[in-house]
Every structure is written in structure tokens, then in C-alpha cells.
Amino acid sequence: MTRGGSIGSIGLLVAVVAGLEALSRTGRVSAFVMPPPSEILAAIPALVLHEGLGYATWLTFNTTFAATAAALLLGVPAGTLLARRRVLGQAYEPWLEAAFAAPIILLYPLFLIFFGRSLVTVAVMGFVVAVIPVIIKTREGIIGVRPVLHNLALSLHMTPLQSLTKIVLPAALPTIFVGLRLGLIYAMINIVAVEFLVGIGGLGFVVADMYDRYDIPSMYSAVVFVIVLSSLFFLLIERGERWLRPV
């Protein structure tokens, strides 16, 4: 079933690409609106060679990882605090949930004023959206630790720090991983968006640049490249999370 399914999925892709190719080649769709897929794919090597697509990829991923690492460094202690001090958690949890649902990306002009048109702004925008799920999930994970484990720490006369590092955090790890995955995804989406909107940095900038030059085939290639790459990346994180998850 799954093998038949994946053959079907790939078959669908081939059919859609062939259909688009036919539409464009026969002139039913103007090449200025959508060039033939073969030309779109053929434009990718030029993007790598002349437009620094490889460097842009490296830059976007580096910014994403840096932003997420900062989010972990700050978010895990913050989530731990909110779990340990119940009242603080109760006070701030709804705010965090609200922030998670808010259009935070729109704050980017504000960060531009403070950090300038630089990679710092891009990274900070990634950090701000990544830290929220990390805090929420860390708190959720620690609160969800079974009471029997707390009792074990007590009966072993563990210090609060020992019980945190040896028992509570490991037990909360699967949920913290969920926060990490969400953080990575949100950071990357927002980083690409800011790059695209401001026209600086990595992958988003390449797409915006190709549009500004009205180089339609290269623009399509850049879009396809970003979508395929990010989808593969997110798939990889999902697999990684399942693999890292201690049962």
C-alpha cells in the first residue's frame, strides 16, 4: 500500500510537471507568467554558480540554527521556571499562547529600527518566534512529569539541581523536543520571510532579488528550491525527533 502510494505520489508529480510543461510549451500559458518546468529546473545550476544560492542556503540554515540555539538557551530555563513557580506559569501561559497565535512577523520593521538592515534583525526575528514554543513545551513537559519520579528524587535525597538535571529534564525531554521542532520550523519560516521582505541574507533574499530583476525562470527555480529544501529539512527534523525520542 505505502509503496504503491509513493509510486502514485511520484507519478502525480510527473503528471503535473508534464501538464505544466505542455501548457507552457504550447503557449496556452505565457512563458512570462510560467516558464516550462524544464527551463525552471535548468536555471538552478546558474543560480548556484552566479547568484550564490549555495551561500544563501548556508546563511539561512546558519541563522535558523543560531536563532533556535538561542531560543533553547533562554527558553528551557524560562519554561523550567514557569513550571516550578506555578503562579508565574499560570500568569504568563495565556500570554505565551496569545503570542504564539499573534502575527509576530509584522514586528520586523520595529526590529529593523533597533538592529538595522542586518543579519542581526533576521536572527532576532527567528529567535522571537522560536523561543515561544520552546518555553511552552518545556513547561508542559516538566508539569507532565509523573509525581512518582518526583518522589523518587525525594527518597534518594537528591538536591533540587540533581533532581532537575537527572530526573525532571530527562523525563520532560520528549515534550521539549516537540518545542525544539516547532521552534526550528517557525524560526526558518520567519527568517525566510524577513529575508524575502527586507531583501537581505539568504534564500528569501534570492527569491526577492530574482523577482525584482523580473528574471521569471530563475525566480521560479529559487521558489522551487526553497520549498523543496525546507520540506526536506522539516521531514528530516520529524524523523530525527522520532529517532531521538527515548521511547
Binding site: I189, V207, A208, M219, V223, V226, I227
Partner: peptide, 9 residues
């Protein structure tokens, strides 16, 4: 989960 903003152009 892909960054859909790049579809904008």
C-alpha cells in the same frame, strides 16, 4: 509547514 511567503512573487 513550508515557508509559503516565497510563493508571493
Amino acid at each position: 509547514p513550508a515557508p509559503k511567503i516565497v510563493f508571493l512573487p
